[in-house]
C-alpha cells in the first residue's frame, strides 16, 4: 500500500448525500410544495369519504323514502327536488356516494388482489405460468371491457355481486400487466439475486424485497384503475344494466332524471338536476386524476436521484 497521507475518509465522503427525514416530515414538505390541483384533489377525496361513511347523518331523508310529489322543484324542503317517483334527490346523492363509490372501491380492491397476485407470480416464475397468464390476459384484453362486461351481464344478470366480480376480473388484466411489468424490473435487481444467494424463501423475497419496491406505481395505478372502474360502473348503471333500483346510484340517477334536461329553457334548476349526479362522478374522478398526476410526477422524480 502507498504510504501517502490519508486524504480520504469514508465518513467524510459526502458529495450530495440526502438528509435523513421521517415519513411524515417528508409528506409535509411534499404537500407544501404540491400544486393547487393536487391539494384540491385531496380535499375533494376527503369530503367524499366523509359523506360516504356518515351518509345517514348528512342525508335529510332515507335512501328510498318516497314523497307524494314526483319531479318536485328545488325548494328548502327538497334541496334538489324529487325524482320521477318522488324520492329526495339530495339524500339519494349522499347515499350514492356510499353505494357507487363503495362498489367501485370493492371492485378495484378485488381487481388488485387478483391481478396483483397473478402478476407477481408471473414475474417471479417467468416460465410456463407467466406464458399461460400473459397469453390469457392478451386475449381478455382483445375485447373492449365494456363490451365484455355487457356480454357477461346479459348471461349472469345484473346483481351487485355479479357486477363487482365481472368488472374486477376484467380489470384485473390491466393490473396484472402493470404488476408484472414493474415486478419484472425489480426481480432482475441484484438485491433480489443477493437474497436468493443467501437462501431466502420465495415468500420472504416477495414480501420484503419485491413488494415494497413496486408499491409507488401500484398506488398510482390504484387511483387510475379506480377511476376507470368507477366510470365503467357508472356507464353500465346509466345504461340500465348496472346497479339496480332502489339502490341510490349516481349513474342510474342520471338516466332516471335525464328527461328533465329539456326543461332547462323554462326552469334552469330543473334542467340542471340530471347533471348533478353526473357532476358528482366527474368531480371525484377529476380529483383523483389530479392527485395521481402529482404523485406520478413526484415518484418518477425521486427515481432520478439527482
Amino acid at each position: 500500500m502507498t504510504q501517502e497521507k490519508n486524504t480520504y475518509s469514508a465518513a467524510g465522503e459526502v458529495g450530495s448525500v440526502l438528509e435523513k427525514r421521517t415519513f411524515w416530515a417528508r409528506a409535509k414538505i411534499e404537500l407544501s410544495k404540491s400544486p393547487w390541483t393536487a391539494r384540491f384533489g385531496l380535499l375533494v377525496i376527503f369530503i367524499y369519504a366523509v359523506l360516504a361513511i356518515f351518509a345517514p347523518i348528512f342525508a335529510p331523508y332515507g335512501e328510498a323514502e318516497v314523497f307524494p310529489e314526483p319531479y318536485a322543484a328545488w325548494s328548502s324542503e327538497h334541496i334538489f327536488g324529487t325524482d320521477q317517483i318522488g324520492r329526495d334527490i339530495f339524500s339519494r346523492m349522499i347515499y350514492g356516494a356510499r353505494n357507487t363509490v363503495g362498489i367501485a372501491v370493492a371492485t378495484t380492491l378485488l381487481a388488485f388482489l387478483i391481478g396483483g397476485a397473478l402478476g407477481l407470480a408471473a414475474a417471479i416464475n417467468r416460465s410456463y405460468i407467466d406464458q399461460l397468464l400473459s397469453r390469457a390476459v392478451d386475449v381478455l384484453m382483445a375485447i373492449p371491457s365494456l363490451i365484455f362486461a355487457l356480454v357477461l351481464l346479459s348471461i349472469f344478470g345484473s346483481t351487485v355481486t355479479n357486477l363487482i366480480i365481472i368488472i374486477a376480473v376484467l380489470d384485473s388484466t390491466r393490473v396484472f400487466r402493470l404488476t408484472r411489468a414493474v415486478a419484472v424490473n425489480v426481480v432482475v435487481m441484484d438485491y433480489v439475486e443477493a437474497a436468493q444467494l443467501r437462501g431466502e424463501g420465495l415468500g420472504w423475497i416477495m414480501r420484503k424485497e419485491i413488494l415494497p419496491n413496486i408499491m409507488p406505481p401500484l398506488i398510482a395505478e390504484f387511483g387510475l384503475r379506480f377511476c376507470f372502474v368507477f366510470l365503467t360502473i357508472a356507464a353500465l348503471s346509466f345504461l340500465g344494466v348496472g346497479i339496480q333500483p332502489p339502490t341510490a346510484d349516481w349513474g342510474s340517477m342520471v338516466r332516471d332524471n335525464a328527461s328533465l334536461i329539456m326543461f332547462a329553457q323554462y326552469d334552469l334548476k330543473a334542467g340542471l338536476t340530471p347533471l348533478l349526479p353526473a357532476a358528482a362522478i366527474a368531480l371525484l374522478t377529476v380529483a383523483i386524476n389530479f392527485v395521481v398526476d402529482w404523485f406520478l410526477h413526484k415518484t418518477s422524480g425521486i427515481r432520478d436521484e439527482q
Partner: peptide
C-alpha cells in the same frame, strides 16, 4: 386531464343542456 375524468354521459348532457335546451 379534466376532460378524460368526465363520464361520456356528463359531457353529452352538458352539450344537450347548452346546445339543445
Amino acid at each position: 386531464l379534466t376532460t378524460i375524468s368526465f363520464p361520456e354521459f356528463f359531457v353529452a348532457y352538458i352539450l344537450i343542456l347548452l346546445l339543445a335546451s
